[in-house]
Design a protein around this nucleic acid. Structure first.
Lengths: 342, 342
DNA sequence: TTGTAGGCGTTATCAA
DNA sequence: TTGATAACGCCTACAA
């Protein structure tokens, strides 16, 4: 399979009997070109199999039409849905995506990813790594000034930074409120890892709702997992050992909820009769758990799309009217889907 | 947040008191540079916050150090695991990834994706869209000659094309053999959509194994789904209506198996006693289904890594010794994980 | 070991 | 409307 040698504007120009600039103008439509010339150029381009070199174009235009995406944990439903949403919206804007995965999202060393992306001259950057411990410490005005416009996903609001996130707290409130409204009085919580911002938010929503209802939200009602089904199983056993009286459970994600359901079955607690369970995320499988899982619908795809739209506005604003200078934060609100488990 | 104006090699050179080429050589290590010069260059680069422009470098070197990945269905476990594997291996080789998603994988119109990727001068291409109906019709020598080296994932072998795939058929054999060896005699099959190559392979493995064991593999023992849990549920009802005598089921993926388990429970068939069930894929949740699912482990991540290694060899060979000219195909073999359902 | 000059493929500028 | 020319930022001969 011998590669065809590069066909350039000059080749097309020669064949069409015009100058390189005319070829460029004809193909990009930047400036008007006579109908005759345009036709000849298009013919020549097709005949030669010409395809413009975006690297060269990017070099002179100082625009790569590429967005960098740094994310993590792609094998999970959430991050991959977000990525899919990002891609769809980027496609609509004719952006390409440069993908970079971070192996350990809790790690602070992000310089490699950062410079890889920046060196490739992306027009904007979406930071979709979840906020864990101090893995946002690198965000300084100093460093940001060397980056293209950045939109951060799933982290708490910060001054002078653009953030787009799911409103985890309100999602948790939805879930817990549903349980309380059904008459449950001892609502426990299986939390995600404390280091995760999203886990803390969901827990906070649980606390707030119980307090508001005049119900206890004590430490003994909480067990933390690591998002995995195994940890959910473990958490329920722990919880029941400490507090055999609980009658409902808000679980911080669907995977752990799956483990909870299994453990409940093994321990002879009927769901929802003895123990009502609500999850979070709404992974596709959750509708087919036994019993099917009542859960919070996390609009991950929409989050991705929204991030791209925000970034697009930032990029356009950057070299036009200096629009988006005031950093802003936006939150998408989850909904609740009620099924058998609660 | 004002963007810093571009810092170039010339700026670094001026500050370090050397020539641009010395800067280049010092930073890339292409050619030897005196220790003194190197130190001054590095200092200057750091002070100026210099970051090389990969677009410019790619233009002159004719190497973008970027791999294009075209895939589909990212919200599913398989494709996203593969992508994660691709990324990991690409990272080790210092490649960046240009991601492109195809909305409808059964569609034949792939030219947009193709030219977007080619125009960005990727050094190689991984085509990870599943083979469905005639969505490979575009693969012609004519067109391939205009593309960089391409590795195709998950499709049947073809002459003059590099293919890396999971050996679906042998995975299916593993599953069915397990059922037969446990004494099951009427083993039905919930298949994926006929249009999918992978679905046909898995079904073929089912047929082969039953034939070899002298057991029937008739049409009435097959129901096709669309990979979703809902379709699995539906398929089991159909199957039992036709053939109430079946005692085992090989399901073409874990998601459908989840639907099957649920339907079985509702219909009062005990798994595995009345009906043994084996799935395919080994999604993380499957270990926590009730009962936990015996299934075929699909090395998706490994597939991605392998694809990148293959592509890397192709790229290196392309402009060195003309190595990988003979197209080749490789298949990764799945394994079986035995749990409660069979 | 270092510097100079030229060009990678494209678009922008300016003059025709 | 068109064409020559000069960048964009970098690397690689080649010369010193």
């Amino acid at each position: 399979m011998p590669r065809t040698p590069n066909v350039t504007v000059r080749d097309v120009a020669r064949r069409a009997g015009v100058s390189p600039s005319t070829v460029s103008n004809a193909l990009t439509g930047e400036r008007p070109v006579s109908e005759a010339a345009r036709r000849r150029v298009e013919q020549a381009a097709k005949a030669l199999g010409y395809s413009p070199n975006m690297l060269a174009r990017g070099l002179v235009r100082r625009r790569s039409h590429t967005l960098g995406v740094v994310t993590s944990g792609l094998q999970l439903f959430g991050p991959s849905s977000t990525l899919a949403g990002i891609e769809r919206q980027a496609n609509e804007y004719k952006y390409s995506l440069l993908l970079n995965l971070i192996p350990r999202p809790g790690d602070g060393d992000v310089m490699a990813s950062l410079s890889a992306v920046v060196a490739r001259q992306v027009d904007g950057l979406i930071w979709a790594v979840p906020e864990i411990s101090a893995n946002r410490a690198w965000i300084t005005p100093q460093l940001l000034s060397r980056l293209p416009p950045v939109v951060f996903l799933s982290m708490r609001r910060r001054p002078r930074v653009h953030v787009v996130a799911i409103d985890n707290r309100s999602g948790a409130r939805l879930a817990v409120h549903h349980l309380v409204a059904r008459g449950r009085r001892r609502v426990a919580h299986v939390a995600g890892p404390t280091e995760w911002w999203e886990a803390r938010e969901r827990r906070q929503g649980w606390v707030e709702t119980l307090r508001r209802a005049g119900l206890p939200a004590s430490e003994t009602l909480v067990a933390a997992g690591d998002w995995s089904p195994a940890s959910g199983e473990h958490a329920l056993r722990d919880l029941l050992a400490r507090r055999p009286d609980i009658d409902a459970l808000f679980v911080a994600n669907d995977q752990m909820a799956l483990g909870v359901l299994r453990a409940a079955q093994q321990l002879g607690r009927r769901v929802p009769d003895d123990l009502a369970v609500v999850g979070f995320d709404s992974i596709p499988e959750s509708a087919y758990f036994s019993p099917s899982l009542t859960t919070v619908v996390n609009p991950m795809g929409e989050l991705g799309r929204f991030a791209v739209r925000t970034l697009h506005a930032l990029i356009e604003g950057a070299n036009g009217t200096p629009a988006g200078d005031a950093a802003h934060a936006a939150a998408l609100t989850p909904t609740l889907v009620v099924r058998e488990s609660a």
